[in-house]
Amino acid sequence: KMLDSLLALGGLVLLRDSVECEGRSLLKALIKKSALCGEQVHILGCEVSEEEFREGYDSDINSRLVYHNLFRDPLNWSKNGKAFPEGPLGALRALCRRTDPGPVTVALDSLSWLLLHLPCTILCQTLHALSHRSSCPDSSSSMERVRVLGLLHEELHGPGPVGALSSLAQVEVTLSGMLSQTSANILYRRPRQRPTHQTQCFSILPDFSLNLQGMSTLESQPHPDPPTTQADPTAHLTFNLRLSEKEKEAKDSLTLPFQFSSEKQQALLCSGPGQATSCIFYEPDAYDDLDHEDPDDDLDI
């Protein structure tokens, strides 16, 4: 299944969405999948309220979600200072330090918000530290998988920051299409392997499970190389590209409907039997402006 393969690699999974095609439902689908695997899911929520984010999950999944609410007061304007005194960066670093047993998934909703408020380099470093926590010497557990799911609104950033984040990502999903029928372009970067591309069509059901569409095109091709076998564009045409001599002759002898010939002119001018009986009676009005010139003078009849 698509969700499994997205989550299998670990590291940073980057979800790139756009205004027409929002990616939060896919993020929630991925979170649900992780939670069903029995993982603890930490969510750094900057864009929607906790209620809105938890909406649609059942209580079993909700109990596995830890929502770090950066939505309510991210910049500490209300000055009660209880949420995150060090701001967004502090919240992110706190996630880094967290030492829970077992595999952990961290969802960032959204990276765009963080990227607008933090310098790109610092964000990338923190994300790197977050997703490579297992290699930290001070962490006691030997092999700990940390998966980071990041939602990125692509239009908000220039190519530089987006490129920096995508080079950090193990899996990159670019969403396009409409809500009912979304297509995802997935790029996998497995260690010591060539990156692979895959395109998948799907729709997300209200319970945040995925419905893969039948017409999903699954192609796996090496990314840096251009496609080697060029498809012949003239293979399955519904028309002929060339004409044989006989066909050409038949074509030339054909009179097209818009061509005006003398026979046609005669056929139009000579009145049929039905028309000959009609005749117009006209009594001139006192103020009539009678023109004695033939109005059809300039026509060739």
């Binding site: 205004v19 929002e22 864009e47 959204s110 765009s112 607008l116 609104h153 239009e155 908000l156």
Partner: peptide
């Protein structure tokens, strides 16, 4: 202005 428009579009429920 484009960033503002897109950023708000992502936050809004109805456009």
């Amino acid at each position: 202005n484009d960033v503002l428009l897109n950023g708000l579009s992502h936050q809004s429920h109805l456009i």
